[in-house]
C-alpha cells in the first residue's frame, strides 16, 4: 500500500518533470519573438521562416535565384522603439551575434550589394531589398519607431545578441547595453 503510494508519487513526479522539459523545449524551438525592454528602449527580434521571406519577395517580383539565395539565410526582423526623451544611436556594425562556437558575421548592405551585382539583379529589386533592411546607423529621436531585417548565415545553434546604443545628441550620454540570449533561426 505504502510502496504503491510512493510509486504513484514517483510516477507523477517523473511525468510532471518530463512534461516541463518537453514544454520548455517546445517553447525554445517555437519562440517567435525575443525582446529587450527598459524605460528608455525596446528592441524586438522576430526570426522569420523562409516561406514568409520568399512570399514577401515573390510578391515584389524578385527573381527565383534571388529568392533562393535569400531563403538560405537566417532572417530576423528587428523593431526598435526609443522610449526616452533623448536621442538613441543605432550602429548595427557594433552588434555582436555569438554562439558557443564563436561569432556569426552579419551579412550587411555591402555584402548584399556585391552578391546582387554578381547575380546582375535589377536596381529596382536591389533598392526594395535595401529598404527592407535595418538601417546601418540611425539617430532614433524621442518616441521614434523604426525597424527592418538583419540577415545572418543560417545556423542551428542558439546565439546571443550583444548591442550597444550611445545616447544624447553628442553621444556622451549613458551607454545602453542590450543582451538577448538563446535566439534561434527558424526553418
Amino acid at each position: 500500500m505504502s510502496l504503491s503510494f510512493i510509486n504513484i508519487r514517483l510516477l507523477t513526479s517523473i511525468v510532471c518533470i518530463s512534461m516541463l522539459i518537453v514544454s520548455n523545449s517546445i517553447q525554445a524551438k517555437t519562440k517567435d519573438k525575443y525582446e529587450y525592454s527598459s524605460n528608455s528602449l525596446r528592441v524586438r527580434l522576430s526570426p522569420k521562416v523562409p516561406q514568409n521571406i520568399a512570399a514577401f519577395y515573390e510578391g515584389r517580383g524578385f527573381s527565383k535565384p534571388m529568392i533562393d539565395t535569400l531563403k538560405q539565410q537566417c532572417f530576423i526582423t528587428i523593431g526598435i522603439h526609443n522610449k526616452s526623451n533623448d536621442i538613441i544611436w543605432l550602429k548595427a556594425s557594433n552588434w555582436v551575434f555569438s554562439t558557443k562556437a564563436g561569432n556569426i558575421k552579419r551579412r550587411d548592405r555591402a555584402y548584399w550589394k556585391s552578391v546582387w551585382k554578381k547575380m546582375s539583379i535589377p536596381l529596382a529589386h536591389q533598392s526594395t531589398f535595401r529598404w527592407t533592411l535595418l538601417p546601418e546607423e540611425l539617430d532614433f529621436r524621442s518616441g521614434e519607431h523604426e525597424g527592418g531585417n538583419i540577415i545572418l548565415p543560417y545556423t542551428e545553434q542558439p546565439f546571443t545578441l550583444t548591442a550597444e546604443f550611445k545616447t544624447k545628441a553628442d553621444k556622451s550620454g549613458e551607454l545602453i547595453k542590450v543582451i538577448i540570449n538563446d535566439i534561434r533561426c527558424v526553418r
Binding site: L123, A124, T128, R130, P135
Partner: peptide
C-alpha cells in the same frame, strides 16, 4: 522612381 535612385539621394530614415 523606377530604380529607387532618387529615393536613395534623399537618404530617408525609412519608408
Amino acid at each position: 522612381d523606377r530604380n529607387g535612385q532618387i529615393t536613395e539621394q534623399w537618404k530617408p530614415r525609412g519608408l
